[in-house]
């Protein structure tokens, strides 16, 4: 067998082997903390497919995406204004940098005390916490646009709108997307945290509740689901990114092989 075939076999085989090991080793487990995988999957199917699908899974995901979308739109817009208008930048720069230092989850208790435990609180917490990574990345991305390109676009007398959509946005794109990716991860964390802090709905709330009421298999089912969602959301984001930044990824590959 040649090397690449062997390596890809190892790559694909290891997760399967690990899952099989978990299944076999835990099968007779009487340890209260680590129930058999068989039972966890059974509970997974009973809980999430589809008894709590609409009431909890969809609710959590809707909060996640609403919050993230608000953060993305606001972050990129404010980022543009901040980077292009020096007066605005000087005005709000220290504020942004101070707010960025606060751990995002620490904002959740503040919003609970301000707006209560409802959906608005969760979406607001997610949006505000996820705002800063994309905002800062947008500012940095625009500030690092090549000065020569800006000069050339001025020489060609591009209008302000053309300069922004055709020159600045594409060249800041890669950095904006890295910011968006961090924002998405923060949004996911705050989604879970906002549910764990005293609400009764959502995947995070159900998982923590299962732990507190000692329903261990349910807790494991929640952890599995959150893990899968965390992975899937990130994967979808990467697909979108690859699509939007195809020109950039292609040019990087060319530059590398040259």
């Amino acid at each position: 067998m040649n090397r690449t075939a062997r390596n890809s076999l190892i790559g694909a085989g290891t997760p399967v082997v690990l899952l099989a090991l978990w299944w076999v080793l835990s099968d007779q487990s009487t340890n209260a903390f680590f129930p058999p995988l068989r039972i966890i999957l059974e509970r997974f199917q009973q809980l999430w497919l589809f008894q709590h699908f609409q009431s909890d899974i969809l609710l959590s995901l809707a909060n996640l995406f609403t919050g993230f979308a608000i953060a993305a739109v606001l972050g990129i817009t404010i980022g543009f204004v901040t980077a292009l208008v020096p007066t605005v930048r000087w005005l709000i720069d220290p504020l942004i940098h101070f707010l960025r230092g606060i751990p995002p989850v620490a904002l959740v208790p503040i919003f609970i005390s301000l707006i209560g435990f409802g959906t608005e609180m969760r979406v607001t917490s997610i949006a505000l916490a996820a705002l800063f990574p994309v905002l800062i990345a947008t500012v940095d991305g625009i500030r690092s646009v090549d000065q020569d390109i800006l000069d050339v676009s001025r020489v060609y007398r591009l209008s302000r709108r053309e300069r922004i959509t055709n020159v600045i946005l594409p060249s800041a794109g890669p950095q904006i997307f890295s910011g968006l990716q961090v924002s998405l991860q923060v949004a996911f964390i705050v989604m879970i945290a906002s549910e764990m802090l005293g609400s009764s709905q959502g995947i995070g709330a159900m998982t923590l509740l299962a732990q507190q009421s000692f329903m261990i298999a349910d807790m494991w089912a929640g952890i599995l689901l959150l893990g899968v969602i965390g992975f899937a959301v990130n994967m979808i984001f990467n697909l979108v990114r690859r699509r939007v930044l195809a020109w950039y990824i292609g040019s990087r590959r060319l530059a590398k092989s040259a």
Binding site: G11, A12, F231
Partner: peptide, 20 residues
């Protein structure tokens, strides 16, 4: 290669998931 898939799966999963 053996750890690649496992690490790639775990990477986007934040620690708050296993907090319970």
């Amino acid at each position: 290669y053996a750890t690649l898939a496992v690490l790639e799966f775990l990477k986007p999963v934040p620690p708050i998931v296993i907090l319970p």
